[in-house]
């Protein structure tokens, strides 16, 4: 039976966002995760600063090195973020919908004059807002730490690159947030939803490169030809690799935080003619370079959210 609904689908959206954000920011779960992220990321940044101070005159992009430089035993700040952000995002939304079912609050909330659209989008946006608040605080802390310990302000170009990196990190978190939300719609038990999301994260972060090599070899033939690496294999490998949000995020971070990066795929010798190797790319060119990766992350978020939305619309509300 088809009928046009009247009234805005976003009625009550602001109320849902406000309540959910307050819940996130005051929850013990979020505080533990924030403490974990802040401690590890700040430790990595501090270790990088100590290393940078020894070589302070060698790079015009000191603040960017703050984020990219690894100092044993700690990995680089961006590597830690790439690892921990999915964890935070999953923790924020793995029980977003099934939690309402289990608490038996869903029918109470949906009996109020709001559509399901507002509830689901509100929960997603609240998660994204909480993640953004946490990341912005971390971003400002790292800059503050850099100012204090390096004694130098970041340049405009560095600020723009770091800002772009912040946006990319939020988009990356958005993908995992949407995925955990999807699992919270699919599975009635929050533990199952969390496990499914963490499993996807593990596959994506640990096993994807192995899988990529195997699938690329199956699709495009062996990696090495008579004259060296085969372009067909490299292209297939890159295409499959980029299905993982981790790859898209890593490429974005690389291009933005290492200005010398001129390409994010196989480069032919003929393409290098006239290029000044090692020279930094202007910030606008770096943004052009990461544009497909950034839009890919945002598109993945939208697609995953849309699937969760369709599934949620079809569910029976009896709890």
């Amino acid at each position: 039976m088809q009928s046009t609904r009247r009234g805005s689908p976003w009625t009550g959206l602001g109320t849902v966002i406000a309540k959910e954000t307050a819940d996130h920011l005051s929850s013990a779960r979020m505080r533990i995760l924030e403490a974990l992220v802040f401690l590890t990321a700040l430790a990595a940044a501090y270790a990088a600063i100590r290393s940078i101070r020894a070589t302070i005159g060698e790079s015009p992009f000191l603040f960017l090195r703050l984020l990219t430089m690894a100092q044993d035993p700690l990995p680089a700040f961006i590597a830690l973020l790439g690892f921990l952000i999915p964890l935070v995002a999953i923790a924020l939304s793995f029980d977003a919908v099934n939690g309402e079912f289990n608490r038996r609050t869903l029918s109470r909330v949906l009996a109020q004059p709001i559509y399901r659209d507002a509830l689901l989008l509100g929960k997603f946006l609240a998660g994204l807002l909480s993640l953004t608040i946490g990341l912005c605080s971390l971003w400002l802390l790292v800059i503050g730490l850099g100012l204090l310990l390096l004694g130098l302000p970041p340049s405009t170009e560095e600020m723009m690159r770091m800002l772009g990196f912040l946006v990319a990190t939020i988009a990356y978190g958005g993908v995992w947030l949407a995925l955990a939300l999807l699992f919270s719609v699919l599975f009635r038990a929050p533990a199952t939803a969390a496990l499914a999301a963490l499993g996807t994260w593990l596959v994506s972060s640990l096993f994807w490169s192995f899988l990529t090599d195997i699938i690329a070899a199956l699709v495009a033939g062996p990696a090495e030809g008579v004259l060296g690496p085969r372009l067909a294999y490299l292209n297939a490998q890159q295409l499959i690799d980029r299905l993982s949000p981790n790859t898209l995020y890593a490429e974005t971070a690389l291009a933005l935080l290492q200005p010398q990066t001129r390409a994010l795929g196989p480069v032919l010798i003929s393409q290098l003619q006239g290029a000044v190797l090692g020279a930094p790319l202007p910030v606008t060119q770096s943004f052009v370079l990461i544009w497909p990766q950034l839009t890919g992350l945002i598109a993945a978020t939208i697609v995953i959210f849309a699937i969760a939305y369709v599934l949620f619309q079809r569910q029976e509300i009896r709890a």
Binding site: S3, R5, R6, D23, R103, R108, A111, P113, Y115
Partner: peptide, 26 residues
């Protein structure tokens, strides 16, 4: 109001107490 076409208007005028009601415990 028709609950199919105007669910928001209906919900504004109807109070619902489900069985085994749940609240946000915190």
């Amino acid at each position: 109001f028709d609950p199919l076409r105007d669910p928001l208007e209906v919900k504004r005028r109807v109070g619902y107490l489900p069985d085994q009601i749940g609240f946000y415990e915190n």
